[in-house]
Design a protein around this nucleic acid. Structure first.
Length: 493
RNA sequence: GGCGCAUUCGUCUAGCGGCCUAGGACAUCGCCCUCUCAAGGCGAAGAUCGGGGGUUCGAAUCCCCCAUGCGCUACCA
């Protein structure tokens, strides 16, 4: 059993592409088959520099490995269509020789004009088959004008073509509704239809799993297999992933690029998990899964037929869940670049804080906040107060304006100075003692103690647990920030 | 215009003739926990299964018609 993923290098892979790749990969891995990567670069005008590399990177990032492909080779290469031109030309000529295809000399201008006119008349725009029955002399005459012809398929004028999709079952179309589509362009490159069939055949592909948008051309492909006398593979057409406007994903949807999610700091396993559950379900009710678990329960029967709307909130949830399943050290390592980019440094560790080295500090930082973030890029925002001078928010100012604030800060200052070490546990104990003391002496409730401290240390009223904040900041910075606030309070008096 | 595919809570979905007064998850709201936010726990609200006809003792599930959305209709894939 062999499947392939056959993207064209026309831009950065988007989520729709990658889900197709994922399903093919899951299918291959679950059945012990081969997963082949093939690059369909037959449109030279749309070719984009670096797109092939982007495809490799995206697949690798998601954790999808391929058994054969342009870079790893394989027994049926080359795996880039632009390197297989002679093959397509040979088989296009084969069809002409067997009266299954013909040369067409019509200019693009004429075709365009015809199409426009047909459209205004309200008839289906279709090639009028003018060149289908050219005599040898007519052809010579046209050729003498130096016209580079295309090769068109000689679609049967009557009868029906039966086609089967594993998800849909058997269908049929009237051949009269099909037109004579182009197989080989005038530049000698094949169209998708030709290249696809030739490659799938010679690469021994047994199952073609592709996006739904290809379903309308399946009858043509079946006709081609018949014309060649080849056995067609099984076909599975996957429902589209659509954007919030319920439209097919396009290059315009920048946030539909896989790369965007990678940069935002979504985990590959979360994206894969999320993607897989759009159009597929294991049937067990389980939602959180690793790639391996998905391989275990993957089956074609559980693929859906209806398009799915992309939901960012749901992705965020998957990401949170997978983030929690990763070892802290890994998450910490992943956070580094984001901190570096936001603050110019990866750490704000100080010798007088509650952690022995920057490594432990970073770990603690991540542990303190990683449950409140959806993706890694949100980390800097959550820990800004550790790296930069604080900006006092209005509600924090209000808390500090209250009469209890002064005494709380003074008492905290004393106790922090006396504290032997800033281990989170020590700080936590110190805060508990502080609360107890202030409750006894001034009748202050817990939040009347903690809020002013939080406000003075971070400028905000919410964030990680206070004892962690203190341990992360270190003694000196805490004392500074408290002193600054106390000065302001004193001036005001 | 033609052809095709789709249609169950806002979203992803379970459901494949009786177990459905339609289940789960995300999001939303409330409560608990708590120094705060988040997480977590508990709970609520949310779908007359796109509409209309059939078939059947019985339909979200089968059949037909319609509507809507989307896709294809290129010397793009």
């Amino acid at each position: 059993m062999r499947v392939r993923f056959a993207p064209s290098p026309t831009g950065r892979p988007h989520l729709g592409n990658m889900r197709t790749a994922l399903f093919n990969w899951l299918f291959a891995r679950s059945r012990g088959g081969a997963f082949v990567l093939r690059i369909e670069d037959t449109d030279q005008t749309r070719r984009i520099e670096g797109a092939v590399e982007a495809i490799y990177e995206s697949l690798r990032w998601l954790g999808l490995d391929w058994d054969e492909g342009p870079d790893v080779g394989g027994p049926y290469g080359p795996y880039i269509q632009s390197e297989r031109l002679p093959l397509y030309q040979e088989w296009a000529r084969y069809l002409v020789a067997h009266d299954k295809a013909y040369y067409c000399y019509c200019s693009s201008e004429r075709l365009e004009q015809m199409r426009a006119e047909q459209l205004t008349r309200g008839v289906p725009p279709r090639y009028d088959r003018r060149c289908r029955n050219l005599t040898a002399e007519e052809r010579r005459a046209l050729e003498a004008q130096g016209i580079q012809p295309v090769i068109r398929f000689k679609t049967p004028l009557s009868g029906r073509t039966e086609y089967t999709d594993l998800l849909l079952g058997k269908r049929q179309v009237r051949n009269a509704t099909l037109d004579d589509f182009i197989l080989l362009k005038s530049d000698g490159f094949p169209t998708y239809h030709l290249a696809n069939i030739v490659d799938d055949h010679f690469m021994r592909i047994t199952h073609v799993m592709r996006a739904d948008e290809w379903l309308p051309s399946l009858p043509r492909h079946i006709l081609l297999y018949k014309a060649f006398g080849w056995e067609p593979p099984a076909f599975i057409h996957l429902p589209l992933i659509v954007n919030k406007e319920r439209k097919k994903l396009s290059k315009r949807d920048g946030d539909m690029e896989l790369d965007w999610y990678r940069r935002q700091g979504y985990l590959p396993e979360a994206v894969a998990n999320f993607l897989a559950l759009m159009g597929w379900t294991p049937g067990t009710g389980t939602e959180l899964m690793t790639l391996d678990e998905m391989v275990q329960s993957f089956s074609l029967e559980r693929l859906s037929r209806s398009p799915a709307v992309f939901d960012m909130e749901r992705l965020a949830w998957f990401n949170r869940q997978h983030l929690k399943r990763r070892p802290l050290s890994e998450v910490a390592a992943l956070c580094r670049p984001y901190l570096q980019e936001a603050f110019g440094v990866e750490t704000a560790w100080r010798p007088d804080c509650g952690f022995p080295d920057p490594e432990a500090w970073l770990s603690a930082l991540v542990e303190a906040v990683y449950e409140e973030i959806a993706c890694l890029s949100e980390i800097p925002g959550a820990v800004r107060f550790l790296f930069e001078d604080i900006v006092m928010e209005l509600e924090a100012q209000q808390v500090l304006a209250e009469p209890a604030a002064g005494v709380v800060l003074a008492e905290f200052d004393q106790r922090l100075r006396r504290l032997a070490d800033l281990h989170p546990a020590s700080v936590q104990q110190m805060l508990a003692d502080l609360r107890g003391a202030l409750k006894a002496s001034h009748g202050l409730a817990g939040r009347q103690v903690m809020f002013p401290l939080r406000a003075a240390l971070t400028g905000r009223l919410h964030g990680p647990q206070l004892h962690l904040i203190i341990a992360l900041l270190g003694r000196e910075r805490c004392l500074e920030r408290v002193a600054r606030v106390r000065n302001v309070l004193a001036e005001r008096r």
